[in-house]
Amino acid sequence: MDENKKAMSSLEEAIACPVCYKTLTTAPQDCNQCHNYFRNELAKLPSASLDLTPERIKGEIDDAVDSQPLRTELFRLPIISFLYERILPPIWAMGLRNVGGIDIEFQECREFFGQNLGIVADISCGTGIFSRRLALLQQCEQIIALDYSEAMLGQVQQQMQLEGISPSQITIIRGDVAALPFTPNSLDAVYSGAAMHCWPDATQGLRNIYQALRSGGKLFATTFLQPLPSIVFRFFTPDELPQMAIAAGFHPDCVQLETRGVYGIIKCVK
Score class of each variant (00 low, 15 high):
Val156Gln: 02
Pro89Val: 15
Leu117Cys: 10
Pro78Phe: 05
Ile165Lys: 04
Phe106Ala: 02
Leu96Arg: 09
Phe112His: 08
Gly95Arg: 06
Gly59Asn: 07
Asp103Asn: 03
Ile119Lys: 08
Gly164Asp: 07
Glu141Arg: 07
Ser149Gln: 11
Gln115Val: 10
Ile119Gly: 13
Ile61His: 01
Pro167Cys: 12
Ile80Lys: 11
Ser67Thr: 05
Gly164Ile: 12
Gly118Val: 01
Gln169His: 06
Gln169Arg: 08
Ile104Ser: 09
Gln115Thr: 11
Gly126Lys: 03
Trp92Ser: 00
Arg132Trp: 12
Ile129Tyr: 08
Arg133Thr: 06
Met160Cys: 14
Gln155Val: 11
Leu137Asp: 15
Glu108Met: 08
Phe75Met: 13
Ile165Met: 14
Ile119Cys: 13
Ile144Lys: 06
Tyr148Thr: 14
Val120Tyr: 06
Leu134Thr: 09
Cys125Thr: 15
Gly154Asp: 10
Ile143Gly: 03
Arg71Lys: 11
Leu153Gly: 07
Phe130Gly: 04
Asn98His: 03
Leu88Asp: 07
Leu136Ile: 11
Leu117Arg: 02
Glu111Ala: 04
Gly164Asn: 04
Arg56Asn: 10
Asn98Phe: 12
Ser81Tyr: 03
Gly126Glu: 05
Ser166Met: 14
Arg71Gln: 09
Asn116Gly: 07
Glu73Gln: 15
Trp92Lys: 05
Thr72Ala: 15
Gly154Ser: 11
Ile91Asp: 00
Leu88Glu: 07
Pro78Lys: 02
Glu141Tyr: 00
Gly101Asn: 07
Ile165Thr: 10
Gln158Tyr: 10
Cys109Gln: 07
Asp122Phe: 05
Gln138Thr: 11
Ala135Gly: 09
Pro69Met: 08
Ser67Pro: 10
Asp147Gln: 04
Leu83Gln: 08
Ala93Gln: 02
Ile165Gln: 09
Glu60Leu: 13
Trp92Ala: 13
